[in-house]
């Protein structure tokens, strides 16, 4: 269409680059630049060394490994770049965690499939413990994460919560799906999430006093006691009924407050801060 590809003269381009052109002229120059490589080259000669900084940053970013879909989704929700890197580092643990939760939940769900009360008890007992075991494992496992903990300039609470998130993200969906597709479990596949939350927070709190292993055993014993008491007193499903859910939420809030208080006084979960 533009038969007259008369190039804006260098002086006009210089005035544009310096910001001395009015809105109409600027718009005209900008429209022209879109279709004119030689005028773009003139602009490049006028602006000084702006390319190298941009190029080095672009190169650094495309050289960095890309985060997983999950981490990028979390980043979109406001996760910081450093936290993303940390979560990505612990991604290697997702596989074992997911497998463990799958096996545990599947066995429990299969047990309850038979329709016996014992099967249901097994599911209700094991499912809330899966994320807890994952959280404890995140602190107890030797290796990369432990080294990182020792050296990273991280708030310990932040680190603890990040690990918990990583575990929950890796374990909970699998457990829910497995529970939901097995007949006989139904809504219970979601109802155990609140006790699981309480147990996770509790485990973190206990780990500010005890080593991870001892904390895990303590929390497991506590949960087993609750299940057994409910099973002995009444229908076992009361352990996940509405009144119980309320108790769990209160307990979760209390555990969260306690955890924050403990970490504020520089007791980090997992010991040796």
């Amino acid at each position: 269409m533009t038969s007259t590809t008369e190039h804006e003269n260098a002086e006009l381009l210089a005035r544009y680059v310096e910001g001395h052109t009015d809105a109409a002229v600027s718009a005209s120059v900008e429209a022209h630049l879109l279709g004119c490589p030689s005028c773009r080259a003139v602009v490049a000669g006028l602006v000084g060394p702006v390319v190298d900084p941009v190029w080095s940053r672009v190169r650094a970013e495309i050289a960095a490994p890309r985060h997983s879909v999950l981490i990028r989704a979390l980043q979109r929700c406001g996760l910081r770049a450093g936290d993303a890197a940390l979560l990505d580092a612990s991604r290697s643990l997702h596989g074992p965690w997911a497998l463990a939760s799958f096996l545990l939940t599947a066995s429990a769900a299969l047990a309850s499939w038979s329709g016996s009360v014992h099967g249901l008890i097994a599911y209700l007992t094991i499912a809330p413990l899966v994320p807890v075991l994952g959280v404890v494992a995140a602190f107890a496992l030797p290796g990369f994460l432990a080294d990182l903990t020792a050296t990273a300039p991280y708030s310990m609470l932040r680190l603890a919560l990040l690990r918990t998130v990583a575990v929950v993200v890796a374990t909970v969906p699998v457990s829910v799906v497995v529970g939901a597709v097995i007949p006989g479990v139904g809504l219970l596949a979601l109802a155990w999430l609140t006790p699981a939350l309480v147990l996770c927070l509790l485990a973190l709190v206990v780990m500010t006093w005890w080593p991870p292993r001892a904390a895990a055993i303590g929390v497991i014993v506590l949960w087993l006691t609750v299940v057994v008491l409910c099973a002995g007193a009444d229908d076992v499903t009361t352990v996940l009924g509405a009144p119980a859910q309320l108790v769990y939420l209160v307990a979760a809030a209390a555990a969260a407050v306690l955890l924050v208080a403990r970490v504020r006084s520089s007791h980090a979960p997992g010991g040796t801060a």
Binding site: Y16, V17, G19, S26, E30, L33, P37, R40, A41, V43, A44, L46, V47, V50, V51, P53, V54, W55, R57, V58, R59, E61
Partner: peptide, 30 residues
Amino acid sequence: GVLVARHTPWLRVRLLRRYADAEVVDDVLQ
């Protein structure tokens, strides 16, 4: 790299016209 070298200058000028903060504009270019 060729694309960055060719198009960074004019894009940067035009972006700065829309938002006069060089730091933000360089992030945008990246």
